[in-house]
């Protein structure tokens, strides 16, 4: 089983690099997951814009118990932050490997279900 070490602690990941236990997540873990390029082939440099989406995803998960599919993510980000952020182009710019899946991975959420 793949692992990632953060602050001396080894955290278990699933086969696609998602944290096994979403409650083990904190900002240090997010930074480590963003720097882990084993699954996406590229590191993500976290900016304030990334953190905005990451925190939004955490809140969504706490509220609904599921990670949002891409269609819902775009809709909800639009509602929360306006149309200039609630669109595919903006979200893919932040998370080029797929905003629904890669953003959820960095946010420490379980792997979203569904094909896209």
């Amino acid at each position: 089983m793949p692992e990632i070490e953060v602050k001396g602690k080894k955290l278990l990941l699933d086969e696609d690099g998602f944290l096994q236990d979403w409650e083990e997540w904190d900002e240090e873990v997010a930074k480590a997951l963003a720097a882990d390029d084993r699954w996406t082939g590229a590191k993500v440099e976290l900016t304030d814009e990334h953190w905005e989406i990451i925190r939004f995803l955490r809140q969504y998960y706490e509220k609904y118990g599921v990670a949002p599919p891409i269609r819902i993510l775009v809709k909800e980000v639009k509602k929360a932050f306006g149309p200039e952020k609630g669109n595919l182009k903006y979200l893919y710019k932040l998370f080029p490997q797929g905003p629904a899946k890669d953003a959820c991975r960095i946010a420490g959420l379980p792997k979203p279900t569904g094909c896209v």
Partner: peptide
């Protein structure tokens, strides 16, 4: 400070 520990082989890792 975090360290990535090598996991199972992935398509990306090739």
């Amino acid at each position: 400070m975090s360290t990535v520990i090598e996991g199972e082989d992935t398509a990306i890792g090739r």
